[in-house]
């Protein structure tokens, strides 16, 4: 079932095109990564889905409806934006209590139980009475996450959830996100420019560049589709490098071959085996110390897209 559906979305600000005809969907239980460099239009897309901005054309639907037009539908949605949405002057507990009430948790005892459970979940039980203004950025982010799920949403929107956090806090927040997806079945829309983060936790991604979606698929499929098969070869003697280069470039199964120090990087046709390359070199008396197939990382795919976008 589709929980988030974006159809031909376009947004202009003062005549400037910020989003250009973007479409994608997020299914129930998915962790969807929305990747792109700063200024690509990620936050604008999220704001339109959340009903904070109106699209110039197109639609952004959650559970089949526009969030901006339906107040009650927003009880099913949790949000952690760039700002944590927390009041510095209130305690950690009071912040959660206020939002819990706004989301309709009217039973005081139930609310208290829920808030204490959440503070425990994010590891802030011992800081519950501290004013938010006194908490570290990592603690605030974790509390922001607790705030976003205080009403047990079915869909969670996260905008750069680990931005500015130290590595330990990043790991913890990512762990919490994965737990939400695995244990509670929450659908997660993750805005990020952190490739490592997206690669680790997202099932499907869209890469946005200059307001357009340049790629949209699962991480594995994107790597397979966009990453040409590569083989890295380390020769036993670098003096044969030029000869090896000449031999490999003459093979039909090789589309490109480059020298890199004492080794070679070979871009092959899709069905080429490493053994074919190895045989060609051995037959010509060139010794090989190491040969390995290299998969293109998401980072490579992403950088290719972003660089191509800049050149356009």
């Amino acid at each position: 079932m589709k929980e988030i559906e974006v159809q031909n979305l376009t947004k202009r600000f003062n005549g400037k095109m910020v989003l250009n005809d973007i479409s994608f969907e997020v299914k129930e239980g998915e962790i969807f990564g929305y990747l792109g460099p700063n200024g690509a239009g990620k936050t604008t897309t999220m704001r339109i889905i959340l009903g904070l901005l109106k699209p110039t054309t197109g639609k952004a639907l959650v559970f089949g409806e526009e969030l901006g037009r339906c107040d009650e539908l927003r009880t099913k949605v949790g949000v952690l934006l760039e700002h944590d949405g927390l009041y510095n002057g209130l305690s950690a507990y009071d912040n959660l209590d206020y939002y819990a009430q706004l989301y309709g948790l009217s039973d005081g005892a139930e609310r208290k139980r829920k808030i204490e459970e959440l503070l425990d979940f994010v590891g802030l039980s011992d800081r519950k009475d501290d004013r938010v203004g006194k908490l570290s950025k990592g603690m605030r982010r974790k509390l922001g996450l607790a705030r976003a799920i205080v009403h047990e949403p079915e869909v969670l929107f996260l905008d750069e959830p680990t931005s500015g956090l130290d590595p330990e806090a990043q790991i913890m927040v990512r762990g919490l996100i994965l737990q939400l997806s695995a244990k509670r079945g929450v659908t997660i829309f993750l805005n990020s420019h952190d490739l490592d983060e997206v690669q680790r936790i997202c099932m499907k991604i869209a890469i946005l560049q200059n307001g357009e979606i340049k790629a949209y698929d699962t991480v594995e499929n994107l790597r397979d589709k966009m990453g040409e098969p590569r083989i890295e070869i380390t020769l036993s003697d670098s003096k044969y490098a030029d000869k090896a280069l000449k031999i490999l470039n003459s093979l039909d199964s090789v589309s490109d071959c480059e020298r890199e120090g004492s080794g070679l990087t070979v871009v092959t046709r899709a069905d080429t085996q490493s053994s074919t390359i190895l045989s060609a070199l051995m037959e010509n008396g060139i010794g090989v110390e190491e040969i390995k197939r290299v998969t293109k990382s998401l980072e490579d795919v992403y950088l290719d897209i972003v660089r191509n976008g800049r050149e356009e």
Binding site: L50, G51, L52, L67, D71, E72, R74, T75, V77, V79, L81, E82, H83, D84, G85, L86, Y87, N88, Y99, L102, Y103, G104, R147, F157
Partner: peptide
């Protein structure tokens, strides 16, 4: 100024 308003606008509050 502190940006809390954006989160509040995402709640069921009109």
């Amino acid at each position: 100024r502190e940006g809390v308003i954006e989160t509040l606008l995402c709640t069921p509050l009109s």
